[in-house]
């Protein structure tokens, strides 16, 4: 069953069309990733899906509700983790959950009964009465995630949930998300951490300039788009090495600054050649989603 269905979404700001004919289908119970460089249209797409802004064209249906027409009804059953923390600084951890639950029209007694479970989920049981200003970045993010669960949503939408977190805190968030997936929740997340998308998402689309340029499961996309091995070669003379050997040893190669990315099916030949090169350092690794992402969106900076 399709839990979210969007067709031909379009949104224009002035002369720029930020979302250009996007189709999305999310199945119940899956983790779906919307990935893309800065300015690809991810946040605009999320805002349209939540019914916060009206698309210029196209149709959206979430949980059987047409959006934005019945956005209120749809949002009753959705939990949102925004990109920027917007917890209430004047309240304690507990009060944040209580006040937020009231926005959904949930009775205080029901919210109070849910709070211990939410605190446990977020690992904040001991911080129940702490002020928000005393929490670390990771704790705030976990609380924001717990807050998004206060209405027991069927769909959880996360906009870059781990941006700005240290690796430990990031892993804790991932653990939480996996727990939600195993409980049968549906997750829609945007990220520009490819590792995050690869670990969590069943399916994803790569969005660039407002359109989907690739989609599928991370594993299938890597298998279909990228040679299985990548040799990252570093050094001042890397350009010369590329000119000499790149076309013969690599199926495809790219140079960025002092790094050459050599994509290949036969890494032994490349390794043999490199062992003779003392001015170059190298790293051999399996290809990953980041390689797919960079293949589609290029290596130029996006601001």
């Amino acid at each position: 069953m399709s839990l979210l269905r969007a067709r031909n979404l379009r949104k224009r700001y002035g002369d720029t069309e930020v979302v250009r004919g996007l189709d999305l289908d999310i199945e119940a119970g899956e983790c779906f990733g919307l990935i893309g460089p800065n300015g690809a249209g991810k946040t605009t797409t999320l805002k349209m899906l939540l019914g916060l802004i009206a698309p210029d064209d196209g149709s959206i249906e979430i949980l059987g509700e047409p959006v934005p027409l019945r956005g209120r009804e749809a949002r009753l059953r959705i939990g949102v983790v925004p990109q920027m923390d917007n917890l209430d600084p004047d309240f304690s951890v507990r009060e944040n959950l209580l006040v937020y639950g009231r926005y959904f029209g949930i009775a205080d007694s029901v919210i109070r009964a849910r709070i211990p479970g939410l605190l446990e989920f977020a690992g904040l049981t001991s911080k129940e009465n702490a002020r928000i200003t005393t929490l670390s970045g990771g704790m705030k993010r976990r609380l924001t995630l717990a807050r998004a669960l206060v209405n027991d949503p069927e769909l959880i939408v996360l906009d870059e949930p781990t941006t700005g977190l240290d690796p430990q805190a990031r892993h804790v968030i991932w653990q939480g998300l996996r727990r939600l997936i195993s409980q049968g929740k549906t997750i829609l997340l945007t990220t520009h951490f490819m590792e995050e998308a690869e670990r969590l998402c069943d399916r994803l689309v790569i969005l660039d300039h407002g359109t989907a340029i690739a989609s599928g499961s991370p594993r299938d996309m890597i298998a279909a788009e990228i040679e299985p091995s990548v040799m990252e070669i570093y050094g001042e003379t890397v350009a010369d090495w590329g000119a000499q050997h790149g076309h013969t040893l690599c199926e495809r190669f790219e140079i960025t600054g002092e790094t050459l990315f050599c994509y290949t099916r036969d890494c032994d030949r490349v390794l043999d050649q490199l062992r003779a090169q003392h001015s170059l350092r190298y790293l051999h690794r399996p290809s990953n989603l980041e390689d797919v992402f960079l293949k589609f969106t290029g290596r130029e900076l996006r601001d």
């Binding site: 916060l52 209120r72 949002r75 949102v80 925004p82 209430d88 600084p89 926005y103 029209g105």
Partner: peptide, 14 residues
């Protein structure tokens, strides 16, 4: 500053 409204707009409120 606090983006309290943004948080509220993600709930059923408009």
């Amino acid at each position: 500053v606090q983006k309290t409204w943004d948080a509220i707009l993600n709930t059923p409120l408009n």
